[in-house]
Design a protein around this nucleic acid. Sequence first.
DNA 1: TTATAAGTTTAGGGTACCCTAAAATGTTAG
DNA 2: CTAACATTTTAGGGTACCCTAAACTTATAA
Lengths: 153, 153
Amino acid sequence: MNKYVSRKVEDYLKAVYEVVGNKGYARIKDISKVLGVKPSTVVEMMRKLSEQGLVIYEKYSGVTLTSSGREIAEAVKKRHDTFRRFLEIILVPENIAVKDAHVLEHQLDPKTILQFTRFVEFITQASATERPKFIKRWIEEFRNYCRRKDITL
Amino acid sequence: MNKYVSRKVEDYLKAVYEVVGNKGYARIKDISKVLGVKPSTVVEMMRKLSEQGLVIYEKYSGVTLTSSGREIAEAVKKRHDTFRRFLEIILVPENIAVKDAHVLEHQLDPKTILQFTRFVEFITQASATERPKFIKRWIEEFRNYCRRKDITL
DNA sequence: TTATAAGTTTAGGGTACCCTAAAATGTTAG
DNA sequence: CTAACATTTTAGGGTACCCTAAACTTATAA
């Protein structure tokens, strides 16, 4: 029932989720590679997550997520994608956007995340439909605004 | 000179900066109150920051910032204010905005921060001047968009 | 001025997350 | 089937940041 998990735990769950998505199961080494930590550190964390009922972990065999683990991982991933798209909208270069979406995806209040989500939705929906020209105009203006600033730098 | 400081160090520097701004100097107790940690923890950190040349700290007397400490604190504060205004723009309730600006003010890439800053500038400048009606229109539309969603909830 | 209160510091611990090195287990080629 | 290699686990450490309790310093009020 305990719903709070740390940043790091979220990272580990997301990593497991990604690897499992690709290969059906995750090895210690895979997770270690994704997160850039040593295998022994992963083992330690898997033991902990297993005790908390977030992963299924048996010594020397693979790791998978429990349903509550998957639930958290999916929520984190969703947040990540929202921030990713948001950073694109405000014209952050892609490589940086990937990295910083990862920072943003942790520890923000649900209401804040909701507003970020709406913002992204609003922009993308609006620019997909025909009607609201002023949005396209708006984005274009913002782009120009940045360009002028970049020249001045 | 080593420029990297942890989140926590940034928090401590910002806290000292704020208290010093109000009273001219900071006592251990003040900092402890601002950050919600015990005085002994503050003492430990002040010792460390003092070694790193970020604060001036003498036992039993107050704490002040060195110029490099102040530089960091000011940068953090500036970021904080940008995020604060940004969260207001996307209609995050004020109490949450204060809290989450604090999360956002750490560990984002300078380019990302730059784009956030520009976004805020663009919106506020644009809505101050007469010309670009489409911005005001845009903000209004976003507000409506959120209102509709809130009703549906 | 001195007892008491208020604030500060030290000593000793604790947790989370990370590491290396060595031991244990698993996999595979000959 | 077994030696050599790859992977995983354990054991033992380390750092950052937080705490409580007790010792110490400073401020204040009678």
